[in-house]
């Protein structure tokens, strides 16, 4: 299936159809009056409808941030929920302007699918969940354990790599879907369950006794997730990239949705550049110079987005960890706006 889609994308690209569709995405978006985002059809914390049907989540707020930067209105978005198999086709065909759907940045995707990542809005990685009764504090103590995993995923391969490189014995129970794997773990067929850490937190909630299980600290793979766009439109790529950096810079400079109006009046040269009272940084992206103000007013800074959707006060309870700012020991780093 994947190969057929990839072949179709390549074929269409070689006929010039795709490149024709991708030129001047920003102008298209402005003409349509909305940003069309490829979104997640339902992953807790990243893209999920709330009780009233409003989309919420980290990825969803990134899409709103782009809309806020362009239109000064975070509601001018259209979400096209995409399954993991047709997400890249939808982006390549111009069905969506930007894909923000916890997609892992890999070399082969970027070199063969005609897409390009604009940044990493969430550093994810594979982790383990075990029952508290096992009294295991680290994945390296899992010698001889039976582990439930979904079949045919990179998760399964990472698991094998991890145990082989640590020279540990293990037994694996592979199941068709992640739900089945979780169910098997829940009913005690396995000692541990493994998937990406962002998924682990949400999966823990669906267990019969969530509090009896803990997520181990080890991360055994790199899963950098981020927004991506079509290749061949650098203006649009820059825009998406700098919206991401603006969210990080706002956090770094302490600009929040609550205090942004005061910060605009500040004399601090860094704040003046970021908030557009000095220089023409917004215009160089094809936006207004108050673009960062618009973004922060619309959705908040990166910290606010994180805390609102996946942070410790949400049911998902993820710590910032790798997603903390570089200055706080994490990996999130934005080049300066200057």
């Amino acid at each position: 299936m994947k190969k057929i889609i990839a072949a179709a994308v390549v074929a269409a690209a070689s006929f010039g159809l795709v490149t024709a569709a991708s030129a001047g995405t920003l102008d298209n978006v402005k003409a349509k009056g909305q940003v069309v985002c490829g979104a997640n059809p339902g992953t807790a914390g990243f893209g999920v409808p709330d009780q009233k049907g409003n989309w919420t989540g980290l990825d969803v707020d990134y899409c709103r941030a782009i809309a806020a930067a362009i239109f000064n209105d975070p509601t001018k978005v259209k979400f096209v929920p995409l399954s993991s198999k047709d997400r890249f086709t939808a982006l390549a065909s111009g069905e969506v302007d930007v894909l923000i759907r916890n997609s892992t940045w890999t070399m082969s995707r970027e070199t063969t699918l005609g897409v390009i990542w604009a940044g990493i809005n969430f550093y994810d990685g594979q982790g383990f969940m075990v029952n508290k009764k096992l009294n295991v504090k680290s994945a390296k103590e899992l010698a001889g354990a039976t582990i439930c995993v979904q079949q045919g995923t990179t998760t399964e391969l990472n698991l094998a790599d991890f145990f082989r490189s640590n020279k540990l014995e293990y037994k694996v129970v592979t199941l068709g879907t992640s739900e089945e794997a979780l169910k098997a773990f829940d009913t005690g067929r396995c000692d541990a369950y493994t998937t990406d850490r962002s998924g682990l937190a949400a999966d823990r909630l669906s267990m019969s006794k969530p509090d009896d299980n803990v997520i181990l600290p080890e991360i055994i793979s790199k899963e950098p997730l981020g927004p991506l766009v079509r290749q061949g439109d650098d203006q649009w790529l820059n825009l998406v990239k700098w919206v991401h950096f603006a969210l990080l810079t706002a956090e770094e400079d302490g600009i929040t949705s609550k205090n942004v109006d005061e910060k605009v009046k500040s004399d601090d040269p860094e704040l003046k550049r970021v908030l557009g009272t000095e220089g023409k940084f917004g215009e160089s992206l094809g936006l207004s110079n108050a673009w960062v103000v618009q973004i922060v007013k619309g959705v908040g800074n990166y910290e606010e987005i994180f805390e609102r959707n996946v942070g410790p006060n949400t049911p998902i309870q993820l710590a910032r960890a790798s997603n903390a700012l570089w200055s706080k020991g994490g990996l999130q780093y934005a080049p300066p706006i200057r």
């Binding site: 059809p41 339902g42 992953t43 807790a44 914390g45 999920v48 409808p49 709330d50 009780q51 049907g53 096209v80 929920p81 995409l82 399954s83 047709d86 829940d186 949400a202 909630l205 669906s206 267990m207 019969s208 969530p210 949400t314 049911p315 998902i316």
Partner: peptide, 26 residues
Amino acid sequence: AIVNIFDFLKVIEASLNDPVWRTSGM
């Protein structure tokens, strides 16, 4: 639902992922 139109069954499934409502019995 496979072409991402949120029909009756799909909205129910999507709601099941809402962390506020996510439990084993839902």
